[in-house]
């Protein structure tokens, strides 16, 4: 399967601030999203997952590596980016903030088509997008303003705004994190439906492993700028290899296992440890005392989607 969206050896380094080293937010990532595939990118805050999402839509320019769309490397001229954005769209975490409070629903959804000169039968396009996003009948919503709608409806407007450009990939950064529990499932259902009806591919960034279980085909677990484990959802979540994935799963309330609480300093992208970057907090290394853990760097995972699971760990290979 040819990937519709791919990153190769992607690096994003933020320049040093006073007194601190440069922050290696994304530090070598390979990832592929196939046609009609939903990939979940999971990690804790500060692991670089949001930066990776922004690099995928061209909001952040990588300092190394490539973003490829249908196999073609992304250019960073204004025209190239604009053309790319018909293809890949972003859905943000906080729908209330992602909508301009002074624009009504119609204008918010019509914004993309207008910017791309798709003004022929604009009304129809907007209404179709609203209906696809589950705001039916669309006429009833077009004149509303963001503050008159619930969080779930706002998120549907944001999704409709992306759909109005008929993209082939959607990158969603924590799409349900700020929504109510009962609304969360409705929005996730919508993402699944869009995949089934439109063949849309999606990369969903989240801190929530349950979300991956709910909607994703494959999952990538990120720690400190790298993907430490990737594979099919069943393989990674039910038979985790990497000690970090195992720890994440063990602290879930329903895990049924004794929680493995990680100790030590929270990960800091301005000082990435040598060797395996997880070694200072790794419970497995504490037990096994292998010299490779802090001495030998791990290769970047290839992100090969045909492998059912890959883990970046000296001890579980």
């Amino acid at each position: 399967m040819k990937p519709v969206l791919e990153v190769r050896d992607l690096m994003v380094t933020y320049p040093a601030r006073r007194g601190a080293a440069p922050a290696r937010a994304v530090d070598g990532v390979n990832l592929q999203v196939g046609q009609g595939e939903i990939v979940a990118l999971v990690g804790e805050s500060g692991c670089g997952k949001s930066t990776l999402a922004r690099a995928l839509v061209g909001l952040v320019k990588p300092t190394g590596g490539q973003v490829l769309s249908d196999g073609v490397p992304l250019g960073y001229s204004a025209a190239a980016l604009k053309a790319y954005r018909r293809h890949t769209q972003l859905v943000l975490q906080d729908p209330g903030g992602a909508l301009n409070p002074r624009q009504n629903v119609f204008d918010a959804v019509a914004e993309g088509p207008r910017l791309h000169g798709l003004t022929d039968r604009l009304g129809e396009r907007v209404h179709t997008a609203l209906a696809k996003a589950g705001l039916r009948p669309p006429e009833q919503f077009a004149g509303r303003f963001p503050h008159e709608m619930s969080g779930g409806q706002q998120q549907r407007v944001v999704i409709a705004g992306a759909l109005a450009l008929e993209p082939s990939v959607i990158v969603a950064d924590e799409p349900v994190a700020s929504l109510d529990a009962s609304v969360r499932g409705e929005i996730l259902k919508l993402i699944l439906e869009l995949r089934d009806s439109l063949g849309l591919s999606a990369l969903v960034v989240s801190h929530d492993l349950g979300l991956a279980w709910n909607i994703a085909d494959r999952v990538a677990v990120m720690y400190l700028g790298r993907i430490v484990e990737t594979g099919t959802v069943e393989e990674v979540l039910l038979r985790p290899k990497h000690p970090y994935t195992r720890a994440l799963l063990s602290v879930l309330p329903d895990s049924g296992e004794p929680p493995v609480l990680l100790t030590g300093e929270p990960p800091d992208p301005t000082s990435v440890p040598g060797g395996c970057r997880f070694h200072p907090r790794c419970p497995l290394r504490a037990a096994e005392q292998d010299s490779r853990c802090d001495g030998q760097d791990l290769p970047v995972l290839t992100g090969d989607p045909s492998a059912s699971s890959l883990a970046a760990c000296h001890l579980v290979q």
Binding site: L59, A98, N100, R102, E111
Partner: peptide, 26 residues
């Protein structure tokens, strides 16, 4: 700094559009 500016950028808005359609009304 608000997210709707980021959304407008991803939708393809240039500097002028961001300033006139999003920043100025606010």
């Amino acid at each position: 700094a608000r997210p709707f500016i980021e959304r407008a950028k991803v939708l393809g808005a240039g500097n002028t559009q961001i300033m006139i359609r999003h920043v100025l009304p606010n």
